[in-house]
Every structure is written in structure tokens, then in C-alpha cells.
Simulated assay, not measured.
Amino acid sequence: MENYTVLIWVIGGIVALFIFFYFIPVNLWFTALISGVRVSLVELVLMRVRKVPPSLIVNSLITATKAGLDLSSKDLETHYLAGGNVPTVIKALISADKANITLGFQQATAIDLAGRDVFEAVQISVNPKVITTPKVAAVAADGIQLVAIARVTVRANIQQLVGGAGEDTILARVGEGIVTSIGSAGTHKEVLENPDKISKLVLQRGLDAGTAFEILSIDIADVDVGQNIGAQLQTDQAQADLKVAEAKAEERRAMAVAEEQEMKAKSQEARAKVILAEAEVPLAVAEAFRSGNLGIMDYYKLENIQADTDMRDSIANPQQKSSTKRKGSSDKK
């Protein structure tokens, strides 16, 4: 029984020591003390209560102190509670201080909380970065397409990292400048002979305004000749004009056919009127016989005159007579 009591006391003592050293990290306090960092045990305990890892704050504070930076544990703890990356900020501050770049703690934390890698920004500021643009196609004044690739050397602008535009904006502006420069060239040969003209014209436009970068240089890496856009446009225009002309010709043909059909209809209408008029002649002759205005001899004279007229027409136009006979025979059949 006494053995069990002793075992319980031993286990309780171990647990108590573990809890004591967990909430009161004496080793960490001693490490900070010999490193020249003033952090009390109470502050370390309060960090545990606020769920802030004391080792992260103390180690970052030791690193900053050894680098000559004047920071406090409260500043680092506040940045951690705000969701920032404390070690990255410390590395960025040390790199900026060694490179003689003006970067304060408040500015570094603001950049970090904005979602940008402040340490990478300092590195790009020290060691400029080269961005390669995708292929940019543009057409010169002579209608020849050119495809250009540019390499843009940029340096991070620390003062505009918060709220400044990123790499996509730089690429878009450089691409727009290349298109404008090639489009303003008289011929594509001018661009091929002097590609540096594109770089000079693009640099003069101040494309890095409002961005998080400063453009140091723009170098045209490659320029290739593409399609003959001018000739292609002329071909398309010629095909379009041909289709318009064909449509107008078809319209005129349709109008001519309609007019011809209309004339045929009018001719048939006139022929019908003549037939109706000729049908009234026998009636008029019969009426003249009944009224005594026309005698039998007069009728025979009229028939002789008509026969004489038909004979003269047949002599003058024998082919017309033969065709008329064939037509009459076919009508009788």
C-alpha cells in the first residue's frame, strides 16, 4: 500500500514539474537572458495563456537583437496575433538593414499582412528579377505581323508593395507598349533592323507607375516574322466584294427575268384582247347583213381583199407562212 502511495506521489510530482516548466519556460528565459534579451517569466507565461508560442517570439527577438535591430516582444507578439509571419519579417528587416534599404518594422508588417512575401521583395530589391513576357503579336504599317518576346528586368519598390500592382500588370503594359511600337513602325524591316527602338519607346512610357516594381530595362529577346495580315485582309476584302457583286448581278438577273415575264403577260393580255375583238367581227358582219348595210357582193369583195393580203404576206415571208401552217396543223391535231 505504501509503495502505491509513493508511486502516485512520484507521478504527481512529474506531472506538476511538466506543467510548471510548460507554463514557465525557465530554459527559454535563461537563453534570452544570456543573449541580451530582456523578457520576464511573467511575459512568457502570458504568451502561453494568449496561445502565442514563446519560443517563436524569443528566438525571433534574439535574432533581431543580435542583428542590431531594436524590437520588443510586444511588437512581435502583436504581429503574430494579427496573422503575420514573424520569422519572415525578421529576416526581411535584417536583409534590408544589411543592404542599406530603408524598411521599418511597421512597413514590413504591413507588407506581410497584405499577403506579399516581404523577404522575397527585399531580395528582389537587392537582386533584380528578370520577367520573360509571352509572345506578343503586332502588325506593322506594311501589314506584316511580327511576334516579339521581351525580357523585363525589374526591382521591387518597397514603398509601393502595399497597394501596388504585380507582375501581371507589368507584363500587360509591356505587351501593350510592344504592340504600339511595332504598329507605329513604317515597315516590319525597320523593327527587324533596330529592335532596340521598341525597348526605348516602351521605357519612355513609364510603365512601372503604380506598380510594386521599378523597371530597370526592357530587352527584346526575339522577333519573328508572322503572317502577312495586310494581304490576308485584302484577300478577304476582295472575296467580300466578289460576293457583293455576285449578289447584285443575281438581283439584276432576277429583275430582268421578272420584267420578261411581265412583258410576256402583257403580250398575252394584248393577244387575248385581239382575239376578243376578232370574235366580234362575224357578229358585226351578221348584224350588217340583217340591217342591210352590207350586201353579199360587198362581203365577197372583202373576202377577196383578205385572201389577196394573205397571199402577198406569204410571198413576202414564206418561212413565216410555213411555220404558221405547221402550228395550225399541230393545233388541229
Rank of each mutant, 00 (worst) to 15 (best):
A221I: 14
V244R: 08
S184Q: 12
Q204M: 04
I158W: 09
A245Q: 10
V244I: 07
E259P: 02
A256G: 11
A185S: 13
V225N: 03
R252C: 12
K197D: 14
I220N: 07
T187R: 10
E260F: 10
A249T: 08
L233T: 02
R253E: 14
E260C: 08
A270K: 12
G164R: 01
A258C: 06
G210D: 04
D168G: 08
A247E: 08
T180S: 15
Q232F: 02
S199E: 04
S217V: 02
V244N: 10
K197H: 11
Q261D: 10
L207K: 01
K243D: 09
A272T: 13
G183I: 05
P195C: 07
K248V: 11
A231I: 02
E190F: 03
A172C: 03
A249C: 05
V162A: 08
V179I: 13
V202T: 01
A231P: 02
V274Y: 12
A254F: 02
V257M: 12
A265F: 07
G226I: 00
A270I: 14
V202R: 01
G210A: 03
I220K: 01
A221D: 15
E260S: 14
Q159W: 10
S181L: 01
E250N: 07
A185L: 09
I170P: 09
G183C: 06
D208W: 00
V257D: 15
A254Y: 01
A238T: 09
D236W: 05
S267R: 12
A270G: 09
E260Q: 14
Q239W: 12
I229F: 03
A256E: 14
S181K: 07
A272E: 14
A238E: 09
V225H: 05
V257E: 15
V162C: 11
T169M: 05
T180N: 14
K189F: 15
A209N: 08
E262W: 04
G163S: 11
V162I: 04
R252T: 15
A231D: 06
D236L: 06
K264R: 12
T211F: 02
R173I: 00
N194D: 13
Q159Y: 12
I158K: 11
A185R: 05
S217P: 03
G175K: 00
F213N: 09
I170R: 01
D224E: 15
S184P: 13
L201Y: 04
I182H: 07
Q239M: 13
G175P: 01
L203W: 00
Q237N: 08
G186Q: 13
L192E: 09
E190G: 14
E250A: 13
K273Q: 15
E251P: 03
V244H: 10
T235Y: 07
V162T: 10
E214H: 11
T169K: 02
G175R: 03
Q268R: 13
N228Y: 01
L161E: 14
T180Q: 12
L161S: 11
I220E: 05
R205F: 07
L171P: 07
Q204P: 03
Q227H: 06
G206Q: 03
S181Q: 10
L276M: 15
L233W: 00
S181A: 13
Q159M: 15
I218T: 10
